Simulated scan of single mutants.
Amino acid sequence: MESKDPEMDYTFMRVCKRMIKQFCPDSNPKDVFRCLKNHKNEPAMEQKCKMVITRRQITKNTDYRLKPELQKACSKDVPKFCAEELKSKSKSEDEFQGIIIECLKIKYREHRLSQDCEGQIRITMQDAAMDYRLDAQLKQACGKTIIRLCPDELDQPGGGRVEECLKAKLNSDGITDEVCRKHVIRLLQEGKADIHVDPVLYKSCALDIKHFCAGIPPGEGRQMSCLLEALEDKSVRLNEECRHMLTQRVEMWEYAAKVAPPETVADLMQQIQMSPSRNYYIIILLCVVGSLFIGGLFCGRATKRIKAELKNK
């Protein structure tokens, strides 16, 4: 009820009263949380209010039913793509712990969601990319690993610093927990699908995206493909920080591909599309197909011809 009507959330309304007046004076009462969330990282935002907003976000991301906009936008996608996850929890009173949102993220990477649902999942992924605590599955799988490998980043968990630490540790074989490793690989795959879900890389390449990839919409790896083409083109001068970060990401993707090879044909095609060496792979594929075609022309039939009279017996 509180998620549908923020005015019923007494703590939120009391602590954030001044911030609501400052940032969202004309907002519809039912949209006030969403409005204030968009201003959470403003310098003028009070720390107490920011903490309450973050706690509410963490709670909402454990169960898709606490996110009314997402639940409405994905009303057809959830039963269609996540029926098994719904069935597994139908006889339990436990929270979903983000499994439905996790399921929708997978379908987002496969470009199978409806347009409205895709938009809501993109927002959810962007929020979680800034703070690992908003990713229920990552927090559950990598909680101990983060304390062990990224203690300095825990002082300021926002800004994607914890996620960036995990990605770096994956590339250096520092993550020994297989479940955590799987989720970090998933973070890298999500970043490939949408650069906005990789806040550190996006911050480094924001100017280059505006300059070289103007007019290219986000999602489906389009902006990332544009940047990778610019990285390969020696005539294009990318920002040095962006070039360095892109090179690091390519190394991480190659390592992730070795650790977790593609499970489906769609995954394989996406990896080829995003690879800096995709032109080489395409040429090899065309050569193989061409060789089979030419071989068929010159070698003729592999089986013996049968006369029509024998076939019609």
Rank of each mutant, 00 (worst) to 15 (best):
K76H: 15
C35Q: 04
D26C: 10
Q97G: 12
Q57T: 13
R65C: 00
Y10T: 15
R18C: 09
A44V: 06
T59C: 10
L70F: 09
S92I: 10
D77I: 03
H39P: 08
R55M: 14
N41Y: 01
I100N: 00
E95K: 14
C16N: 02
I53H: 03
N38P: 06
K40E: 11
C35P: 02
G98W: 03
D26H: 11
P29A: 05
Q22I: 06
K87I: 08
G98I: 00
E69P: 06
S27Q: 07
D31G: 04
K40H: 07
T54I: 15
N28V: 06
Q57C: 08
T11N: 11
I106E: 15
L66Y: 03
Q22H: 13
Q22N: 09
I101Y: 04
D94W: 14
R56Q: 06
I100F: 02
K107M: 10
F81T: 01
C35R: 03
S88I: 04
T59M: 12
L86Y: 06
H39L: 11
K87P: 07
C16F: 03
R56S: 06
E42P: 03
K91W: 12
S75C: 08
S75E: 10
I99V: 10
I106C: 09
I101G: 05
R109I: 08
V78Y: 02
C24T: 04
S92M: 12
I100T: 01
V15M: 04
K107V: 06
K67G: 07
D63E: 01
N28Y: 04
V15F: 09
K67F: 10
L70W: 07
L70M: 12
C16D: 06
R18I: 11
K105E: 14
K76M: 12
L70I: 09
E93M: 15
S88W: 04
K72I: 15
A73E: 00
Q97E: 15
K48F: 07
N61W: 08
K67V: 11
K72F: 14
S90R: 10
E110D: 07
K76V: 09
V78L: 02
L70E: 09
I20D: 00
R109S: 05
I53E: 01
K37G: 12
H39V: 10
Y108N: 07
K80D: 11
I106T: 14
K72C: 10
K48S: 14
K30W: 07
T54D: 14
K91V: 10
C74M: 02
K107N: 11
E85T: 09
E95P: 15
Q71K: 10
M45T: 00
F81K: 04
R56K: 08
Y108H: 05
K37T: 14
D26L: 15
E110M: 07
I20W: 03
T11E: 12
H111G: 03
C74F: 01
Y10S: 14
F96K: 13
A44P: 02
E102M: 05
C103T: 12
P29S: 05
P25L: 02
H111M: 08
M51Y: 07
T59D: 13
L70R: 00
L36T: 00
D77F: 00
L86D: 03
I53R: 02
E84G: 10
E84N: 12
R18W: 07
P68M: 03
D77K: 00
T54A: 13
C74S: 00
N61S: 13
E69V: 13
Q47V: 11
L86H: 01
R14G: 14
D9I: 03
A83H: 13
V78C: 02
Q47I: 09
C49N: 01
